[in-house]
């Protein structure tokens, strides 16, 4: 598959403050999650690839064309900014139709598209209320609506789930996945890991303005195979289970947890470990209550990469 968005040695400073440093990557079709703590450079990166700001070094191309001041191309891109700001006294409907007007469409088309977008984000009922009277979640949804209303091929969302309640979040996640199904390219930034996990496996980790990792979550997990993995098992007889593990070389450490019946096993080969586990339970008639991997989520990957 060819890359939709390409960056080459992208670097950006604000005065003498580093925003982004030496980012070279390719983003392909589908959903890509940009992850990093606040102030890591996510927004800077998204502003650069949407041509909001100009890089000090390096270049960005979207579908082979440079982005900076390349306006005709922007009709293929939808962007949902992070800041919670709107034009003063507009209603939701006016906001959408006004912005759609900038795509040089006929007014019937504008109305059709605005209606559709409002329906998608479920704001149709409130479309004639002033944006100022919207709740935080409604404003967030309206921002998403303006980024998708013109039916772009590339959708770039900066913290779209911020300030949404669980139901609103679920809806937006579902929406983003639907768009992926339609063959679009979606770039989503977030600092909340489970959100990204729920949407995609393709992630880019940004921290201190640098790319720490890029690729499939599992691929990244494999990359750091040298980092041993901890599995927590709660069962009826942890000490008996522990005996069975000790003979295997892929088990590095066996600990008993603070809670009753918890066994913590550290391994450097999950595949072998989990391949063995069910049969151990069955053979020894151990009753399992729980198996979890405390560090098998993005947070752990993240913590490991940024050295915590």
């Amino acid at each position: 598959m060819t890359a939709i968005i390409q960056t080459q040695n992208l670097s950006k400073w604000y005065g003498n403050v580093l925003g982004l440093s030496d980012v070279t990557l390719e983003i392909e079709q589908g959903i890509t999650g940009i992850l990093g703590p606040n102030g890591a450079g996510k927004s800077t990166f998204l502003k650069l690839i949407t041509g909001q700001i100009k890089s000090n070094i390096g270049s960005v191309t979207i579908m082979g064309q440079p982005v900076w001041n390349n306006y005709p191309q922007f009709s293929e891109i939808g962007f949902c900014p992070e800041q919670d700001s709107f034009y003063g006294e507009m209603t939701g409907w006016q906001f959408l139709t006004s912005l759609l007007r900038l795509y040089h469409l006929s007014s019937t088309e504008i109305e059709k598209k605005a209606d559709k977008a409002l329906e998608i984000v479920e704001l149709s009922e409130d479309k004639n209320r002033a944006v100022r009277s919207y709740s935080r979640g409604m404003r967030q949804r309206l921002k998403v609506a303006q980024s998708i209303a013109h039916d772009p091929k590339i959708i770039i969302l900066d913290e779209p789930l911020n300030g949404l309640d669980p139901l609103g979040r679920r809806k937006i996640i579902r929406l983003i996945k639907e768009y992926k199904g339609e063959g679009r390219t979606i770039v989503v930034s977030s600092h909340v890991l489970p959100e990204i996990e729920a949407m995609t496996n393709q992630i880019i980790l940004i921290h201190q303005g640098k790319i720490f990792a890029q690729g499939d979550i599992h691929y990244i997990r494999d990359l750091i195979e040298t980092h041993p993995h901890i599995i927590s098992i709660r069962c009826s007889d942890p000490r008996q289970l522990a005996q069975k593990f000790i003979h295997h070389d892929f088990v590095l450490k066996v600990n008993f947890g603070l809670k009753k019946g918890v066994l913590l096993v550290e391994t450097n080969s999950r595949d072998k470990f989990f391949g063995l586990l069910p049969s151990l339970f069955v053979e020894n008639q151990i009753e399992v209550e729980e198996i979890t991997s405390p560090d098998d989520n993005l947070q752990a990957v993240f913590d490991y990469l940024i050295g915590k």
């Binding site: 989990f274 069955v282 198996i291």
Partner: peptide, 26 residues
């Protein structure tokens, strides 16, 4: 519930996560 593990052994499936769910607040 232990039957799940029996099936896993027979079907050669790894179980990597196994939690009895409470009705979570969500």
């Amino acid at each position: 519930p232990q039957d799940i593990f029996k099936i896993a052994v027979e079907e050669k499936v790894q179980i990597r996560h196994f939690v009895k769910s409470q009705t979570s607040l969500e």
